[in-house]
Nucleic acid binder design. Sequence first.
DNA 1: ACCTGAACACCGTTCAAGT
DNA 2: ACCTGAACACCGTTCAAGT
Lengths: 176, 176
Amino acid sequence: MRGTGHDLEGIVDAALELLDAFGLPDLSMRRLATHLGVQPSALYWHVENKQSLLAAVADRIVSEAAPATGVRETARALRDALLNRRDGAEVVVSTAALSLGSDALEARIRSAYEAAGSADPARDATVLAQFVLGHTYLVQQRMQAAAIGAYDADPADVAAATRADFEAGIDRLTTP
Amino acid sequence: MRGTGHDLEGIVDAALELLDAFGLPDLSMRRLATHLGVQPSALYWHVENKQSLLAAVADRIVSEAAPATGVRETARALRDALLNRRDGAEVVVSTAALSLGSDALEARIRSAYEAAGSADPARDATVLAQFVLGHTYLVQQRMQAAAIGAYDADPADVAAATRADFEAGIDRLTTP
DNA sequence: ACCTGAACACCGTTCAAGT
DNA sequence: ACCTGAACACCGTTCAAGT
């Protein structure tokens, strides 16, 4: 954790650690700097601002999705990747206009539609990506509420109980 | 704007004005207090914290959706209500676990499914609500990016161009 | 090239005290 | 009942200066 030789990759690593440990609301530039053993201002040598850092975090989260073939399998892999990081969906959605993350997510779905011989893979991918992100965001929010105790359920149970909703969604959105 | 006799309703009114004028990132408790001609601490007599205030704002946004019959018409009315307020979708999604807003949105869709004779209105409504929120959030983010100039399109055009995506989505999600 | 130190302009929230 | 004043513990970001 000495303050020498950091690069963007290492900063994203550290940001993901804080994200999983404390959640997005507590992921501040100052905490991140402390975690790296560095002054807050040092981060701005490597990163333009917090928004672009979060975009890089989003890209990384999406890139961690397992390889998959088929539209449904791809959608599941992407959902799993978002669920695998605390507040993962929120990070990806909130930086969608800046990061490649959301584009990468949609692009992977589009490739799957193309391979499946869709008549309009671009539109199909847009629609399914919007569902995947909306679904996962809301699921993850309920998980967080459950962890706080505002919601009377176990966080892990929430994920399980909502899997059927997700399957119903991709079922309708993948069979024309 | 004198500092006498405010209630939650009036505070939500003022918050919506600031939201439309400056967007969610610039909607702070301090700015809101200034807008109301009052000290920041005065707000905490009427509201527990910022989160619950945003939840009340979310409820109001959803409540402004036009009455509609039919699943598709209901989904369109809700999308329009979110698009009608700057960052409306983000406000509703981000307070989904706290506010009635997201529940109200899903409840309205559920009623429409029930009236249409759905075999599983609860699941259908959950899935469609997730799509409506995900879709609208991403559309609105592109509109905001277009307004900043980061996206090479007119904000109004973005809304128009994405309407076809929305129709494609509700088409798949409403016809079993 | 990479980081520190110090500052600027902000936040949300609490709480005694006023009226 | 409703609000002020003042404080606490934070933010993101900039920029001269150090090495």
